Simulated scan of single mutants.
Amino acid sequence: MSHDVLEAAGVTTPAAVVEILHEAERASTACASAMVGAGGMEREVLLALDCADLCSAAARVLGRRHGDEAVARAAVEAAMLACEASSAACGAHAGHHEHCRRHSEITRDAAALLREQGGG
């Protein structure tokens, strides 16, 4: 999503935040799919799917003008917590699975940016 599109729509959320949420969603979905194929990582799959869903929801909320700051903060907080949990879980497999390494890095970066933007 381009910064110009967000600005023209009156969205005040930095474009980098919306973009990293979309990136975390894609990485989480891809990693969950790969883990299902590998088998034996049910907890990690569930955390990755939670992360994908919460990042997607937060990106949608933050990618538009919002009327309730508390709702926006809650969306950011939920996505940040999901990113942290999923990053930690997949990080434990980063040495064995490239998809886990990349997913862990992206969600760690997303959580850090969300925290920096005031998510907790």
Rank of each mutant, 00 (worst) to 15 (best):
E23Q: 14
R102M: 13
A24Y: 06
A48F: 07
A32V: 00
G63V: 02
P14C: 07
R65E: 12
L113C: 10
H93D: 05
H22D: 06
T12D: 10
Q117N: 14
A111N: 08
A16D: 12
A75Q: 11
E42S: 15
A30N: 03
A8M: 14
C51S: 15
C90Q: 08
H22Q: 10
L62V: 07
A32H: 04
A34Y: 09
S56D: 13
Q117H: 15
L114Q: 06
L6M: 11
A112M: 10
A9C: 14
G67C: 02
E23R: 12
A57T: 12
H22G: 12
C55D: 02
R43P: 01
L62W: 01
T107E: 13
G40L: 11
H103E: 07
R65Y: 06
A9M: 14
R26W: 06
R115E: 07
A94R: 09
A24W: 07
D109E: 15
T29N: 07
E116Y: 11
D109C: 10
H93L: 14
H66C: 01
G95E: 07
E19Y: 03
A72K: 02
V5Y: 11
V36H: 06
G63Q: 01
A52I: 05
P14E: 04
R102G: 12
V45R: 00
A34I: 02
A74Q: 13
M1H: 09
G118K: 02
R73F: 05
R60G: 03
R73G: 07
G118C: 03
R26E: 13
Q117T: 02
G67E: 09
